[in-house]
């Protein structure tokens, strides 16, 4: 019994070590003044972070990433929320179709769909390649499955039909009932899904690099372009990015757990 428990602990710690070691090394490297021929860094400094956070190109790229992600998620919310409500309330049978549809963005590898998108939007009336709009559209399809799944679970947890019927009988119109009775109950699921999608999207590289590249440099593209520069500097960038994602994921988990907000 004790040996089995030891073994299980060992496996978990080993896994943790494998996952944390590269991060810890990157963190240490980003804090090192110099670290090349010695076992340990020559000295510690915050200089790389100060330089990173005062670098206009980095700040611009970070801002662009935020903007594209926020735009895609806002677009997704505006479109998905009403669509989900209509499906759940009026056409529940369409749910099966939607479940297949939302898997499509996963079915095609990003590199393959990028090639298609490049062909489709390179010229003509919708010359979107090289603009943030194509990224917003692209990220929308990536966020869709996350939002849809989270909201479906939320919708199933409330007795949508009975709630709507009750509100109708008490004098509310369908719009009013959806707004004051259904929407507030989806808020939590929506926020969690948005935060998780955000932390995923802000790290997206393939679409950003192939469809827009340096014409609208996002965080990951900037990181890629900096790969020949100082390793300490890019390490600070990676750690900064990681902290942002960690913060957002933590917020999502926190919201998901908090029983008082249910």
């Amino acid at each position: 019994m004790a040996r089995a428990s030891m073994y299980h602990r060992l496996v978990v710690w080993l896994l943790l070590l494998v996952l944390v070691l590269p991060l810890a090394a990157t963190l240490l490297y980003s804090l090192a003044t110099q670290w090349s021929a010695s076992l340990l860094p020559a000295g510690l400094t915050f200089d790389w972070y100060l330089r990173l956070w005062s670098e206009p190109r980095f700040l611009a790229a970070f801002g662009r990433s935020l903007l594209v992600c926020a735009g895609a998620l806002a677009f997704a919310c505006l479109l998905v929320l009403p669509a989900m409500f209509v499906i759940a309330y009026h056409f529940p049978r369409l749910d099966a179709v939607m479940n297949v549809l939302i898997l499509l963005p996963f079915a095609v590898p990003p590199v393959v769909s990028s090639v298609g998108l490049l062909q489709l939007f390179a010229g003509g009336p919708l010359a979107l390649v090289g603009t943030p709009w194509i990224l917003i559209g692209c990220y929308f399809t990536i966020a869709l499955p996350f939002l849809y799944r989270a909201l479906t679970n939320n919708l199933q947890a409330i007795e949508l039909r009975d709630l709507m019927d009750a509100a109708h009988l008490l004098g509310a119109s369908t719009f009013r009932a959806a707004l004051s009775v259904v929407l507030p109950n989806l808020r939590k699921g929506l926020v969690v899904a948005v935060l998780l999608s955000f932390s995923f999207l802000i790290g997206e590289f393939v679409f950003a690099n192939l469809l827009v590249g340096t014409r609208y440099e996002t965080l990951q593209v900037y990181l890629n372009n900096m790969r020949n520069g100082s390793g300490h500097f890019t390490s600070a960038l990676v750690i900064s990015y990681f902290m942002v994602v960690l913060l957002v994921t933590w917020a999502a988990n926190r919201l998901n757990r908090d029983p008082s907000s249910s």
Partner: peptide, 12 residues
Amino acid sequence: AMVFQSYALFPN
């Protein structure tokens, strides 16, 4: 007015 088996109270 109607009272439902599931109560149908507004959870929020």
